[in-house]
Protein backbone atom coordinates (compact mmCIF):
# COMPACT_ATOMS: atom_id res chain seq x y z
CA UNK A 1 0.00 0.00 0.00
CA UNK A 2 2.63 2.46 1.01
CA UNK A 3 4.75 1.71 -2.04
CA UNK A 4 1.90 2.52 -4.43
CA UNK A 5 2.36 6.26 -4.38
CA UNK A 6 6.09 6.02 -4.96
CA UNK A 7 5.86 3.51 -7.82
CA UNK A 8 3.16 5.29 -9.77
CA UNK A 9 5.12 8.51 -9.73
CA UNK A 10 8.16 6.85 -11.28
CA UNK A 11 7.04 4.41 -14.00
CA UNK A 12 3.25 4.08 -13.95
CA UNK A 13 2.70 1.34 -11.39
CA UNK A 14 0.97 -1.58 -13.13
CA UNK A 15 0.30 -4.10 -10.37
CA UNK A 16 3.63 -2.87 -8.92
CA UNK A 17 5.61 -4.48 -11.75
CA UNK A 18 6.14 -1.13 -13.43
CA UNK A 19 5.07 -2.36 -16.85
CA UNK A 20 2.35 -4.45 -18.43
CA UNK A 21 3.51 -8.06 -18.96
CA UNK A 22 1.33 -8.55 -22.05
CA UNK A 23 1.39 -4.96 -23.33
CA UNK A 24 -2.10 -5.26 -24.78
CA UNK A 25 -5.32 -3.83 -23.47
CA UNK A 26 -7.86 -6.14 -21.84
CA UNK A 27 -10.22 -6.11 -24.84
CA UNK A 28 -7.61 -7.58 -27.13
CA UNK A 29 -6.48 -10.05 -24.47
CA UNK A 30 -10.09 -11.26 -24.07
CA UNK A 31 -10.42 -11.65 -27.82
CA UNK A 32 -7.28 -13.83 -27.82
CA UNK A 33 -8.64 -15.96 -24.97
CA UNK A 34 -11.92 -16.43 -26.84
CA UNK A 35 -10.04 -17.37 -30.00
CA UNK A 36 -7.98 -19.98 -28.13
CA UNK A 37 -11.18 -21.59 -26.84
CA UNK A 38 -12.71 -21.46 -30.31
CA UNK A 39 -9.55 -22.96 -31.80
CA UNK A 40 -9.91 -25.84 -29.36
CA UNK A 41 -13.49 -26.40 -30.52
CA UNK A 42 -12.48 -26.50 -34.18
CA UNK A 43 -9.44 -28.67 -33.40
CA UNK A 44 -11.68 -31.16 -31.63
CA UNK A 45 -14.03 -31.30 -34.63
CA UNK A 46 -11.17 -31.86 -37.06
CA UNK A 47 -9.53 -34.43 -34.80
CA UNK A 48 -12.86 -36.26 -34.54
CA UNK A 49 -13.03 -36.19 -38.35
CA UNK A 50 -9.51 -37.61 -38.59
CA UNK A 51 -10.23 -40.31 -36.03
CA UNK A 52 -13.34 -41.65 -37.75
CA UNK A 53 -11.76 -41.30 -41.16
CA UNK A 54 -8.93 -43.56 -39.99
CA UNK A 55 -11.47 -45.99 -38.55
CA UNK A 56 -13.37 -46.16 -41.86
CA UNK A 57 -10.36 -45.63 -44.14
CA UNK A 58 -11.47 -48.50 -46.40
CA UNK A 59 -14.75 -46.88 -47.45
CA UNK A 60 -14.10 -43.18 -46.92
CA UNK A 61 -14.72 -41.13 -50.11
CA UNK A 62 -11.81 -39.34 -51.75
CA UNK A 63 -12.47 -35.56 -51.64
CA UNK A 64 -11.12 -35.21 -55.20
CA UNK A 65 -14.02 -37.40 -56.40
CA UNK A 66 -16.60 -35.43 -54.43
CA UNK A 67 -15.81 -31.74 -54.79
CA UNK A 68 -15.30 -31.40 -58.52
CA UNK A 69 -18.08 -29.15 -59.84
CA UNK A 70 -17.54 -25.59 -61.00
CA UNK A 71 -20.18 -23.02 -62.04
CA UNK A 72 -20.76 -22.79 -65.83
CA UNK A 73 -18.27 -25.57 -66.55
CA UNK A 74 -19.53 -28.89 -67.83
CA UNK A 75 -16.99 -31.42 -66.62
CA UNK A 76 -14.90 -32.20 -63.58
CA UNK A 77 -12.47 -29.66 -62.16
CA UNK A 78 -11.60 -31.12 -58.75
CA UNK A 79 -10.78 -28.68 -55.95
CA UNK A 80 -10.87 -25.63 -58.24
CA UNK A 81 -14.03 -24.25 -56.67
CA UNK A 82 -12.86 -24.73 -53.10
CA UNK A 83 -9.53 -23.18 -54.15
CA UNK A 84 -11.47 -20.15 -55.33
CA UNK A 85 -13.31 -19.99 -51.99
CA UNK A 86 -9.93 -20.07 -50.20
CA UNK A 87 -8.72 -17.23 -52.43
CA UNK A 88 -11.82 -15.15 -51.59
CA UNK A 89 -11.33 -15.65 -47.86
CA UNK A 90 -7.59 -14.90 -47.91
CA UNK A 91 -8.34 -11.81 -49.98
CA UNK A 92 -10.91 -10.61 -47.45
CA UNK A 93 -8.34 -11.21 -44.73
CA UNK A 94 -5.92 -8.91 -46.55
CA UNK A 95 -8.54 -6.15 -46.86
CA UNK A 96 -9.13 -6.58 -43.10
CA UNK A 97 -5.44 -6.04 -42.27
CA UNK A 98 -5.48 -2.97 -44.48
CA UNK A 99 -8.53 -1.69 -42.56
CA UNK A 100 -6.69 -2.20 -39.26
CA UNK A 101 -3.62 -0.52 -40.75
CA UNK A 102 -5.72 2.48 -41.82
CA UNK A 103 -7.26 2.59 -38.34
CA UNK A 104 -3.79 2.92 -36.79
CA UNK A 105 -3.13 6.09 -38.73
CA UNK A 106 -6.72 7.34 -38.14
CA UNK A 107 -7.74 7.38 -41.82
CA UNK A 108 -11.49 6.99 -41.46
CA UNK A 109 -12.30 6.82 -45.18
CA UNK A 110 -9.71 4.09 -45.81
CA UNK A 111 -11.03 2.11 -42.84
CA UNK A 112 -14.53 2.27 -44.33
CA UNK A 113 -13.30 1.28 -47.80
CA UNK A 114 -11.29 -1.75 -46.64
CA UNK A 115 -13.88 -2.83 -44.07
CA UNK A 116 -16.58 -2.58 -46.75
CA UNK A 117 -14.52 -4.77 -49.09
CA UNK A 118 -14.03 -7.27 -46.26
CA UNK A 119 -17.80 -7.47 -45.77
CA UNK A 120 -18.29 -8.03 -49.52
CA UNK A 121 -15.61 -10.76 -49.46
CA UNK A 122 -17.34 -12.44 -46.53
CA UNK A 123 -20.69 -12.37 -48.36
CA UNK A 124 -19.04 -13.82 -51.48
CA UNK A 125 -17.60 -16.65 -49.41
CA UNK A 126 -21.01 -17.38 -47.86
CA UNK A 127 -22.60 -17.40 -51.31
CA UNK A 128 -19.95 -19.82 -52.57
CA UNK A 129 -20.56 -22.05 -49.61
CA UNK A 130 -24.31 -22.06 -50.31
CA UNK A 131 -23.55 -23.18 -53.89
CA UNK A 132 -21.19 -25.86 -52.60
CA UNK A 133 -23.81 -27.18 -50.16
CA UNK A 134 -26.48 -27.15 -52.87
CA UNK A 135 -24.35 -29.31 -55.16
CA UNK A 136 -23.31 -31.62 -52.35
CA UNK A 137 -26.94 -32.15 -51.30
CA UNK A 138 -28.46 -32.60 -54.78
CA UNK A 139 -25.58 -34.71 -56.11
CA UNK A 140 -25.46 -36.33 -59.53
CA UNK A 141 -28.24 -37.36 -61.92
CA UNK A 142 -28.19 -41.09 -61.17
CA UNK A 143 -26.54 -41.22 -57.76
CA UNK A 144 -25.09 -44.36 -56.22
CA UNK A 145 -26.35 -47.96 -56.00
CA UNK A 146 -25.96 -50.48 -53.21
CA UNK A 147 -26.25 -54.16 -54.10
CA UNK A 148 -27.77 -56.86 -51.89
CA UNK A 149 -24.31 -58.00 -50.78
CA UNK A 150 -23.40 -54.43 -49.75
CA UNK A 151 -21.30 -53.34 -52.74
CA UNK A 152 -21.38 -49.57 -53.15
CA UNK A 153 -21.14 -48.31 -56.78
CA UNK A 154 -21.14 -44.69 -57.95
CA UNK A 155 -22.35 -43.40 -61.29
CA UNK A 156 -20.98 -40.36 -63.07
CA UNK A 157 -22.99 -37.90 -65.19
CA UNK A 158 -20.08 -37.63 -67.65
CA UNK A 159 -19.75 -41.41 -68.12
CA UNK A 160 -23.27 -42.80 -68.58
CA UNK A 161 -23.59 -46.54 -68.08
CA UNK A 162 -20.42 -46.84 -65.99
CA UNK A 163 -20.34 -47.77 -62.33
CA UNK A 164 -17.20 -47.21 -60.28
CA UNK A 165 -16.35 -48.84 -56.95
CA UNK A 166 -14.28 -47.44 -54.13
CA UNK A 167 -11.34 -49.79 -54.76
CA UNK A 168 -10.87 -48.30 -58.24
CA UNK A 169 -12.55 -51.09 -60.22
CA UNK A 170 -15.41 -50.37 -62.62
CA UNK A 171 -18.11 -52.16 -64.59
CA UNK A 172 -20.04 -51.06 -67.70
CA UNK A 173 -22.56 -52.20 -70.28
CA UNK A 174 -24.83 -55.09 -69.42
CA UNK A 175 -22.92 -55.81 -66.23
CA UNK A 176 -23.64 -52.28 -64.99
CA UNK A 177 -27.28 -52.58 -66.09
CA UNK A 178 -27.57 -55.80 -64.10
CA UNK A 179 -25.96 -54.17 -61.05
CA UNK A 180 -28.47 -51.32 -61.20
CA UNK A 181 -31.45 -53.61 -61.73
CA UNK A 182 -30.59 -55.87 -58.81
CA UNK A 183 -29.51 -53.04 -56.50
CA UNK A 184 -31.42 -52.78 -53.24
CA UNK A 185 -30.96 -49.06 -52.95
CA UNK A 186 -30.39 -45.97 -55.09
CA UNK A 187 -29.02 -42.95 -53.21
CA UNK A 188 -29.22 -39.40 -54.54
CA UNK A 189 -27.08 -36.60 -53.17
CA UNK A 190 -26.45 -36.38 -49.46
CA UNK A 191 -28.33 -36.07 -46.20
CA UNK A 192 -27.56 -36.95 -42.60
CA UNK A 193 -28.42 -40.67 -43.03
CA UNK A 194 -26.77 -41.53 -46.34
CA UNK A 195 -24.88 -40.03 -49.27
CA UNK A 196 -23.88 -41.04 -52.77
CA UNK A 197 -20.20 -40.27 -52.22
CA UNK A 198 -19.31 -43.18 -49.97
CA UNK A 199 -20.82 -46.01 -48.00
CA UNK A 200 -20.79 -44.13 -44.68
CA UNK A 201 -23.07 -41.34 -43.44
CA UNK A 202 -20.18 -39.93 -41.39
CA UNK A 203 -18.58 -38.19 -44.36
CA UNK A 204 -21.65 -36.04 -45.06
CA UNK A 205 -22.31 -35.52 -41.35
CA UNK A 206 -18.82 -34.10 -40.85
CA UNK A 207 -19.10 -32.04 -44.01
CA UNK A 208 -22.33 -30.43 -42.83
CA UNK A 209 -21.14 -29.91 -39.28
CA UNK A 210 -17.60 -28.62 -39.86
CA UNK A 211 -18.21 -26.42 -42.91
CA UNK A 212 -21.54 -25.36 -41.39
CA UNK A 213 -19.93 -24.40 -38.10
CA UNK A 214 -17.23 -22.50 -39.95
CA UNK A 215 -19.80 -20.88 -42.25
CA UNK A 216 -21.75 -19.71 -39.21
CA UNK A 217 -18.54 -18.13 -37.90
CA UNK A 218 -18.14 -16.31 -41.21
CA UNK A 219 -21.77 -15.21 -41.02
CA UNK A 220 -21.27 -13.85 -37.48
CA UNK A 221 -18.06 -12.18 -38.64
CA UNK A 222 -19.88 -10.43 -41.47
CA UNK A 223 -22.53 -9.17 -39.03
CA UNK A 224 -19.90 -7.94 -36.53
CA UNK A 225 -17.95 -6.28 -39.35
CA UNK A 226 -21.16 -4.60 -40.46
CA UNK A 227 -21.77 -3.24 -36.95
CA UNK A 228 -18.21 -1.89 -36.76
CA UNK A 229 -18.62 -0.41 -40.26
CA UNK A 230 -21.73 1.50 -39.11
CA UNK A 231 -19.96 2.65 -35.92
CA UNK A 232 -16.96 3.91 -37.90
CA UNK A 233 -19.15 5.66 -40.48
CA UNK A 234 -21.00 7.48 -37.68
CA UNK A 235 -17.70 8.68 -36.26
CA UNK A 236 -18.02 6.67 -33.05
CA UNK A 237 -14.37 5.59 -33.07
CA UNK A 238 -13.18 9.09 -33.92
CA UNK A 239 -14.97 10.44 -30.87
CA UNK A 240 -13.28 7.71 -28.81
CA UNK A 241 -9.95 8.62 -30.51
CA UNK A 242 -9.31 4.89 -30.68
CA UNK A 243 -9.61 2.33 -33.46
CA UNK A 244 -8.89 -0.75 -31.35
CA UNK A 245 -12.39 -2.06 -32.06
CA UNK A 246 -11.37 -2.57 -35.70
CA UNK A 247 -8.30 -4.44 -34.52
CA UNK A 248 -10.35 -6.76 -32.30
CA UNK A 249 -12.88 -7.61 -35.00
CA UNK A 250 -9.89 -8.06 -37.31
CA UNK A 251 -8.44 -10.68 -34.98
CA UNK A 252 -11.72 -12.60 -35.15
CA UNK A 253 -11.86 -12.33 -38.93
CA UNK A 254 -8.30 -13.60 -39.40
CA UNK A 255 -9.08 -16.47 -37.07
CA UNK A 256 -12.01 -17.47 -39.28
CA UNK A 257 -9.61 -17.39 -42.25
CA UNK A 258 -7.11 -19.48 -40.29
CA UNK A 259 -9.73 -22.12 -39.50
CA UNK A 260 -10.62 -22.30 -43.19
CA UNK A 261 -6.95 -22.96 -44.03
CA UNK A 262 -7.11 -26.03 -41.77
CA UNK A 263 -10.54 -27.15 -43.01
CA UNK A 264 -9.27 -26.77 -46.58
CA UNK A 265 -6.30 -29.03 -45.91
CA UNK A 266 -7.90 -31.70 -43.77
CA UNK A 267 -11.29 -31.87 -45.44
CA UNK A 268 -10.53 -31.17 -49.09
CA UNK A 269 -6.86 -31.91 -49.79
CA UNK A 270 -5.84 -34.86 -47.62
Amino acid sequence: MSSQAGASSSSGNIWSGGRSPFAVRWGKMYMWIFLISDAFTFSSLLVAYGTLRHTHSGIWPKPVDVFREFPFIHGHVPLAYVGLMTFILIMSSVTMVLAVDAGHSRRKKSVLLWLGLTIIGGCMFLGSQAWEWYHFITGSEEGAYISADGKFGRTDDLEPGVIRFHDGTMIEGTEAEHFKATAVKNIHGANLRENEYGNTPLFANFFFFITGFHGFHVFSGVLINLIVFILVSRGFLERKKDYELVEKVGLYWHFVDLVWVFVFTFFYLV
Partner: peptide
Protein backbone atom coordinates in the same frame (compact mmCIF):
# COMPACT_ATOMS: atom_id res chain seq x y z
CA UNK B 1 -5.14 -35.08 -28.75
CA UNK B 2 -4.20 -35.68 -32.40
CA UNK B 3 -1.68 -38.41 -31.58
CA UNK B 4 -4.07 -40.04 -29.11
CA UNK B 5 -7.14 -39.99 -31.35
CA UNK B 6 -5.54 -41.03 -34.63
CA UNK B 7 -3.91 -44.01 -32.91
CA UNK B 8 -7.28 -44.89 -31.38
CA UNK B 9 -9.04 -44.41 -34.72
CA UNK B 10 -6.78 -46.90 -36.49
CA UNK B 11 -7.21 -49.39 -33.66
CA UNK B 12 -10.98 -48.98 -33.83
CA UNK B 13 -10.81 -49.70 -37.56
Amino acid sequence: LIILCLYEGVALG
